[in-house]
């Protein structure tokens, strides 16, 4: 709020917030509170990469390319396990305000944390796997989209993993929990929960909680996320199966 450029935008949000206070508001895209946006997933989006995937959740559009395993460029000591190098970028045209420096500097490390538990790092010693994510359009729930898409790209690149990582987020607005929030819903949330989950193993690789929560609500929100992740995991699996069987 310090910068004058964002002043107009913020006031706009304040106005929008008011109808959200009572319990029976409707989401802007007409979804139910516990309804995710339709997912569209494709592997092999970038030909130059060893593996790549494209994901579309409503208006959130993400492309992830995976390079490697390749020789670590930095001179480093011998290590028995491989390195996972993650990088998340936003395209200049991804947000409503063009070329705005995004405040998502921590996305890269969050992506790394979410993936490192799922990848068998010991299967490629001395080498690095680079994961480059580009958010083409930021329509809310960007990080979950990036995580799911990245795990798909890793699988496409033939990198050994314990399981796919599916991710979903829940926003808490007033008294209601809404899953897979869109950008404008994220702007006026009281708290958010992001879960990265391995569906077949039923293990959580990452859990991020921000804002005000009560214990009961956290439970409720986590259950919602896990359920959404399991379903997304199935979709990711069918996407990969299709890719494999079409190329044999």
């Amino acid at each position: 709020m310090a910068s004058p450029a964002s002043y107009a935008l913020r006031r706009h949000q304040q106005q929008r917030r008011r109808p959200l206070q009572d319990d029976n508001w409707v989401r802007s895209d007409g979804r139910g509170f516990h309804q995710c946006r339709p997912a569209f997933l494709r592997t092999g989006a970038a030909r130059a990469a060893s593996g790549s995937a494209y994901a579309e959740f409503g208006s959130t559009k993400v492309i992830v390319s995976v390079f490697g395993p390749r020789e670590s460029k930095k001179a480093m000591k011998y290590s028995g396990i491989g390195r996972l190098n993650c990088n998340v970028n936003f395209a200049t045209f991804s947000t409503a305000t063009r070329g705005q420096e995004s405040d998502h500097k921590d996305f890269s490390s969050m992506l790394h944390k979410a993936l490192e538990g799922a990848v068998l790092l010991e299967s490629f010693p001395k080498t690095t796997v680079d994961v480059f994510a580009l958010v083409l359009e930021s329509g809310g729930s960007d990080l979950p989209a990036v995580i799911s898409c990245a795990s798909l790209a890793l699988a496409d690149a033939g990198i050994m993993m314990y399981d796919l990582v599916a991710s979903a987020s829940v926003s808490c607005i007033g008294n209601s929990l809404i899953i897979d929030p869109a950008a404008e819903e994220e702007d006026c949330q009281d708290g958010s929960l992001t879960v990265a989950f391995m569906p077949s193993r039923r293990e959580i690789t990452q859990l991020t909680l921000t804002g005000e929560w009560s214990t009961g609500r956290i439970h409720e929100a986590t259950e919602l996320c896990l359920d959404a992740c399991s379903k997304l995991g199935e979709i990711m699996r069918t996407c990969l199966k299709q890719a494999v069987s079409s190329s044999t």
């Binding site: 690149a157 033939g158 044999t248």
Partner: peptide, 22 residues
């Protein structure tokens, strides 16, 4: 499986052959 691909079996050995790998 820890990879995507085709399951190959040679006697007792079971392995996954990836298609898009190095």
């Amino acid at each position: 499986a820890t990879l995507c691909g085709v399951v190959e079996r040679v006697n007792k050995l079971v392995y996954v052959r990836t298609l898009r790998a190095r």
